[in-house]
């Protein structure tokens, strides 16, 4: 960890002004940033504490739905009664990640910016294009059991490790940000990026921008949903594959479907044109299997992670089955349903 100056922002505009120029990082929960600083992956000159900013409320959003302040902790979000009732998918996704202690500290904005768990990214004595552009990617041909199968590039095969992001992608959330040139709203699917030839850039957030809140749309899929997370142990592990599935059922027919995958790409993986295949369909293994095929089209295995294609395929089918049946996976069960 390097020496840095530490300041505290009192309002959003002040925070944004602080971020210009030097290598500055905002800190809220610090659950990822502090680790990265200890590992010397992040070496900011200046750290700006934003925890005093008034962004801790969960409120009704202007166009329906709920607005989560960027500083709402993962724990507060997951245990908020409005979230539990209206967005159980988000609640279950959050509760499937990390530990109670981490969720108490981690914030909504910080979770959106959580960085990959690629072994090489965390070890400064090894090359990594994401950490040190141009140094190479030893995960390609190396240890890549946990890496991406979709949307990879020759420069990077890292995944986005967040569970919350996957649920927000399925729900179609919007990320509200503020920069020196004003505010803008970024649809969640445009927020995270694929690695292409710039793996060092995880998101489309600009250098001077601060996440202020996240809007959850009115359509909440509170009945037919599931967050199915497959990992190497029953708790406290990042997803090998996860599936957020949300359906709107009309009678016995699917009226609308959302499917987002975690653990398989540099961003939560959604393909609305594939989801459209389910519109008007009746739930069934064959239908779900076709959808899984289409969702995973173009997947490219690395030397150690071909299993993820098969695992994701099966997980998609199971998740859609759970969602259609209205029997969502529950983190409380510590077993797959």
């Amino acid at each position: 960890m390097n020496r840095y100056t530490f300041t505290q922002a009192v309002d959003a505009d002040g925070a944004v002004r602080e971020k210009i120029g030097a290598d500055v990082r905002f800190i809220a929960g610090g659950t990822n940033l502090i680790d990265l600083m200890k590992y010397n992956v992040e070496r900011p000159d200046r750290v700006v504490d934003i925890t005093k900013l008034p962004m801790r409320d969960i409120a009704e959003a202007p166009h329906g739905g709920l607005r989560l302040g960027a500083l709402v902790t993962n724990a507060v979000c997951a245990y908020d009664t409005r979230i539990a009732e209206r967005y159980p998918l988000l609640r279950e996704a959050i509760l499937s990640g990390a530990s109670p202690q981490l969720r108490n500290a981690a914030t909504t904005g910080g979770n959106l910016l959580q960085r990959t768990r690629c072994y090489y990214f965390y070890d400064v004595d090894t090359p990594c294009n994401k950490r040190q552009p141009g140094s190479g990617c030893p995960a390609i041909g190396g240890l890549n059991r946990i890496h991406a199968i979709l949307g990879t590039s020759e420069h990077c095969i890292a995944t986005n490790p967040s569970d919350m992001n996957v649920a927000m992608a399925a729900l179609g959330a919007t990320v509200n940000v503020r920069g020196t040139s004003g505010e803008r709203a970024i649809p969640i699917l445009d927020f995270h990026r694929l690695p292409d030839d710039k793996p060092e850039v995880d998101t489309n957030l600009r250098g001077d921008e601060l996440i202020t809140s996240v809007d959850l749309p009115d359509e909440a899929f509170a009945t037919h949903y599931t967050y199915l997370k497959l990992r190497d142990r029953a708790s406290y592990a990042f997803a090998l594959v996860s599936v957020a599935a949300a359906l709107r059922m009309e009678g016995g027919t699917i009226a609308e479907a959302r499917i987002a995958l975690g653990g398989v790409a540099h961003k939560p993986w959604r393909r609305p044109e594939v989801e459209a295949l389910l519109k008007g369909a009746k739930p069934g293994l064959q239908t779900f299997s076709k959808v899984a095929d289409a969702l995973l089209e173009g997947s490219r295995p690395q030397s150690q992670n071909a299993y993820k294609i098969q695992l994701a395929h099966r997980a998609i089918i199971r998740a859609l089955t759970q969602a259609a049946d209205g029997t969502p996976q529950s983190v409380a069960d510590k077993a797959i349903l």
Binding site: T126, P138, G141, G142, L143
Partner: peptide, 11 residues
């Protein structure tokens, strides 16, 4: 897990 190209334990 060892990365044998680097000769280093990685996780």
């Amino acid at each position: 897990f060892s990365d044998h190209a680097l000769g280093r334990f990685m996780n």
